[in-house]
Design a binder for these strands. Structure first.
Lengths: 113, 113
DNA sequence: CAAAGATACATAAGAATCTAATGTATCTGA
DNA sequence: TCAGATACATTAGATTCTTATGTATCTTTG
């Protein structure tokens, strides 16, 4: 089972930030594979979604980049900047809070009018 | 604190379906107020988001409508159709599953390479 | 050793879904 | 009376994703 795409919307940035917080530095392709692995294939981040997100994080100053060559092939590593670390904490705790709220909403058994 | 809007994206349809499952029939404005109340103002559904969603649910055959007049003012009640009830179960359990996955993703403490 | 599949970057058109603004109209309480 | 709440609805624009495409290198396998 793969989650319907709408569910992923809005959480991608937080997922990426959190992965970077846990793994120090990662490159794009690695992120897609890591998410796929950690979620047992339930979340598959496409490159068309990931790269624009990474670029946005960079232009917002939340991540810094360094390029490395593996043979002739380029690899672009992303790391959290100090403000990126703060942002990560904010986004993660907001998402955790949101999930609590949603869990409550989904469990409610109220009067059937 | 109000959740950043991107978080709501993709969950609105599920929230509405679940509310209808619990409350038999509801009208649009009532839904906005109910969500606001149940989430202590953390989730505020705007009408610009809600009405198109309700109309989409209707044209998908997931809800049926009945109009009622309160004085001269019209009120449009929405109820789940049989397929809407099935859809609600699907969407709710998918979202619950998704939240488990996200919780795992957010809590992971892995090697710092 | 050729070809397929994996690795690795990137962009772009289009779809989906929300925000913010606007519109109309009625009801209620101070 | 008049502001605020109730109640419907639409629309322009923004955001963010999907799907497709492009380029190039590396690795594995028949």
């Amino acid at each position: 089972m793969i989650y319907s795409s709408e569910l992923i919307k809005g959480t991608l940035k937080t997922i990426v930030l959190k992965l970077l917080a846990d793994n120090k530095k990662m490159y794009g392709y690695e992120i897609t594979q890591k998410v796929k692995e950690l979620t047992l294939d339930k979340i598959q981040i496409t490159e068309g979604a990931l790269y624009p997100t990474l670029h946005a994080l960079e232009s917002d100053g939340l991540v810094t980049t360094e390029t490395e060559f593996i043979g002739k092939r380029v690899r672009k590593y992303y790391s959290l900047s100090p403000s990126g670390k703060n942002k990560t904490k904010e986004k993660v705790s907001e998402l955790a809070d949101f999930m609590e709220t949603m869990k409550f909403l989904l469990d409610i058994k109220t009067r059937t009018v």
